[in-house]
Simulated scan of single mutants.
Amino acid sequence: MQSLDIGGTEHQIAVLLPSESYNALLAQARWRLALLLSFLLVLSIGSCYFLSKKYVEPIISDLQQLQSNPDAAPQSNLLEINQFFDFLQSKSQQQEEKLRQLSKERNAVQQQYGLAATRLKDAQSRQQAIAEQYKALEEQLHALKREMEQARQQMEQALQEKEQAQQQFNFAQTALDKVVAKKLQIIDHDSYKMFIDSLSTLTTKEKEIFDLYTQGLSTKDIIAQQQISENTLKYHNKNIYSKLGVKSRKELLQYIELMRNTR
């Protein structure tokens, strides 16, 4: 049906066909549509197969290869796959470099830990040695304190003994002074003065024998020490008595004792 404008009036034109012709045309159109769809379907299947063989299967193969051997080159020549593989290899190299760096750092840390452990062990050994030395010093200090306490006690005892000895000495000196005073009362002062003044007149040998008398040696000891005979000693004694103004050995010894006590 088609519209037609005649003289300003719109008319509808329709062509009538027999039903057989219409059905034949309709069937022909359906066959053509079916053939077109079949062709398109076959073309689609062929295109899918071609694309699968050319692109999909190499991609799948490269992905499988990537799982089994990431370092191998891709089998397909696709730019995207090659770029993806290059990217993964670059990442893998970076990861390996990082792993090597981490391994170096770990080795360095282990070495530092070993050095630190060695230093700690040495420090502990030194600390133990210092502790032992400190303990030994403490023991020495305690022993020194005990010795100081003993020395203090001994010093106090010595001071007490010294004080007692001083008291005894003072007592003895007082008694001696009394004895000397009594002897001075008995002995003639002029004779004693002449005795003292005459000591310078003795010869060297006589002075040696006189000094031996002052030391308290006996006649026998003087003879042995001077290696002289008894007669020689008597001769020297006679000279000594004469020069010092004494009459006997007893008087000589009295003057010597008085001389020692009055010095």
Rank of each mutant, 00 (worst) to 15 (best):
E156L: 03
K243Y: 02
Q160R: 13
L26N: 12
I59F: 07
L258N: 01
I13Q: 11
A172W: 07
N231L: 08
M148N: 14
Q173I: 09
V179T: 15
S44Y: 09
Q168P: 00
A24S: 08
A72H: 05
L184T: 03
F169Y: 15
E96W: 12
S52C: 12
A108Q: 08
E230K: 07
L144V: 11
K162Y: 08
H142I: 10
Q167F: 04
R106F: 14
P18C: 02
V179D: 14
I256H: 00
Q254E: 15
I59G: 00
F210H: 02
S248R: 03
Q128Y: 05
K145N: 06
M194S: 07
L25P: 00
T204R: 04
Q154Y: 13
I228Q: 00
D5C: 11
E139L: 10
F84E: 07
Q28M: 05
L40E: 09
D211Q: 15
N170R: 13
K135G: 13
V180N: 06
H11N: 08
L120Q: 12
I186P: 00
L233E: 00
Q64L: 14
F50N: 04
A14N: 01
D197G: 07
A24M: 07
V179M: 15
Q185E: 15
K121G: 10
N170T: 11
D71M: 11
